[in-house]
Design a protein around this nucleic acid. Structure first.
Lengths: 160, 160
DNA sequence: GAGTGTTACTTGCTTTTTGCAAGTAACAGG
DNA sequence: CCTGTTACTTGCAAAAAGCAAGTAACACTC
């Protein structure tokens, strides 16, 4: 972490510091896309279902790179395209993501089938090892089908 | 989760839904205080080191309660005081918190001694079982010493 | 039981962050 | 060259966060 950030630290508690880096609604979704969906480009993140604004996406990519969680390099074949990738520090977030996935699936109504979650919970270590293997191999095949099924269209407020 | 929130969901991905509930800089710090420090009151959260503003704290407590992660009831002995407590849904966040702790301690400069973290990582299941046992027993003894040591005093920007 | 201190908030205001719509520079493909 | 893509930026409005002060309800002391 750079000095600029360091000087603004709230405390030295690891949880607090972690949250200062990716404690927002979007950062971990980008990490999720990189980790389990095999996404790598700006456009893919943008179209990944939750509807992040392009300026916020650009900002998050900058921050994640500054914090050393992702790396960015221009595509060899197509020079317009940037390829983002998790760093070792970034892939180490796999346990956090997995726990988040399990918690959400257990306690909220989601599109994740209970059977799949049970399976992942039972074989936690294998799942994590698999995630890491895929990352090392640069395997872009999605690990999980996107649990999307975006609901109709959210509105600010239901009209009277 | 209540209908109001439900209607604003970005997607049905469990990770996304989890982040909508506690994906911000403060919510999980409150959970941490409840889970490992044995804090229960507004004042304790407020003084817990990171300097949350009172209006934001009040808001987060409301949201966490609305989401079913914590419960609130007035203290028997002192009727001014509210006692907050994790619900079963809230204590189920223990794995997330633990992974966050481990990640932060591994990858950032924190006040957590490496030896303690190694120990926790090695005995992950025991630590989680212990957390749950303490929660069930309503044991308010801190599980960990606050990894605080708040750095001097953060400034907006270093002056010229 | 009057006075003082606590506790858990709220209120009002400023600053920062987010969200949204549009625009643009660099490149690719035909 | 012309058109479409990709990865952004810009400008502005709305929402959220931060800050300082205030307050209602209770507790504690004398």
């Amino acid at each position: 972490m750079r000095d600029e950030l360091k000087s603004n630290l709230r405390s030295l508690c690891p949880v607090s510091i972690s949250l200062e880096i990716f404690g927002d609604r979007w950062s971990l979704l980008i990490v999720r896309d990189l980790m389990v969906r095999g996404y790598r480009t700006f456009g893919e993140f943008q179209r990944s279902g939750e509807g992040i604004a392009t300026n916020v996406l650009a900002d998050r990519l900058r921050r994640l790179e500054a914090a050393g969680l992702i790396s960015a390099e221009p595509d060899e074949a197509d020079r317009r395209r940037m390829n983002y990738r998790l760093t070792p520090k970034g892939i180490d977030l796999a346990p956090v993501l997995l726990d988040l996935l399990i918690w959400g699936a257990r306690h909220e109504e989601t599109a994740a089938p209970a059977a799949v979650i049970d399976e992942m919970e039972r074989h936690r270590d294998e799942v994590l090892a698999d995630v890491r293997r895929r990352w090392e191999a640069r395997d872009p095949t999605p690990l999980l089908p996107p649990f999307d099924g975006k609901p109709a269209r959210r509105k600010k407020k239901a009209r009277a």
